[in-house]
Simulated assay, not measured.
Amino acid sequence: DLSDQTEVLRSGIAIERLSLLQSELTRLEAERANLKEQIPKLRDVAENQKKLKRDIESLLDLIEADILARDKPRKLAVSTFGEISQFLYNEPGQLVMNRSAKEAGLVIETDIAGKKSGGKNHMQVFCFDWTIAEVAQSYGRSPGFIVHDSHIFDGVDGRQIGLALKQAQMKCDELGFQYIVAMNSDDLQKIKAEEEIEGAEIFDPEPYILPTRLSDREDGGLFGLRF
């Protein structure tokens, strides 16, 4: 009734509620204004996303067209990779170059015989580097040398190490290349151990070993410096 309403007004509760409602209304109006301001920006973002998607598709089509246009060097690279990997594992490996279906760019994949391991991965790098060097040489774009750290032979069997060095030596003679590789002494021992098992020489590295030695002993280092 009227007396109850009058009592509520006297208590100040109605005024407090009105103040809260006004504050909430002000907040909602500000939020509404902000959302209205964001709508055009969201539309611009959506349009930009569509444009970027079209641009990516266009670039991917150009990559695919470029692969087809360079069919001759691509086939040379594939056959060279197969030849080099076959020398190491008695069967040719695979070098595949395709336009990526999911990512923007060119996908290059390699695979060689043997179980998946760190050593196999390193030998894929060895084969790929020599493939690039040989193909580049045929187009007059090669620097004429390859440099590998000792890491290239980590986890690789002695037979593959020996065959890789033999392959590199043959390629150097064929292409007029220089191959520089840092070798751990125990990797050289792996070659000798494998030769003893097979009863035949795989590769003799002695004529190609430079006299410089690096070691972790007290008198070791590089150019007189300790690291």
Rank of each mutant, 00 (worst) to 15 (best):
Y179D: 05
L163K: 01
D129M: 06
K41S: 13
N90L: 13
G144T: 00
K190V: 08
R159C: 14
L175A: 08
G82V: 01
E196A: 15
S85D: 08
A33N: 14
Q94A: 11
R99Y: 06
L214Q: 06
Q178I: 02
M123E: 05
K72G: 06
D186P: 09
K115V: 05
A77E: 03
Y139G: 06
E37M: 08
L165N: 00
L95C: 05
D149K: 02
N121G: 13
S185C: 06
G119H: 02
I191E: 12
Y89I: 02
I13Y: 13
D204A: 08
K115P: 08
E64V: 03
V78G: 12
I39V: 15
A33M: 14
E31F: 12
Q189P: 06
S19D: 15
L225E: 11
R217C: 15
G144V: 01
K120L: 13
I161K: 05
R32H: 12
G158P: 02
T80A: 15
Q137P: 09
I15H: 13
E201Q: 05
E29S: 10
P92D: 09
F145Q: 07
G119S: 06
Q160S: 09
E103P: 12
S215Y: 04
G119P: 05
I112W: 04
E218H: 07
D216K: 07
N98V: 09
A193D: 04
P207I: 03
D1Y: 03
I56L: 15
E91Q: 07
L18K: 10
Q86D: 03
R43V: 11
K192Y: 04
S85R: 02
I152C: 13
F177C: 09
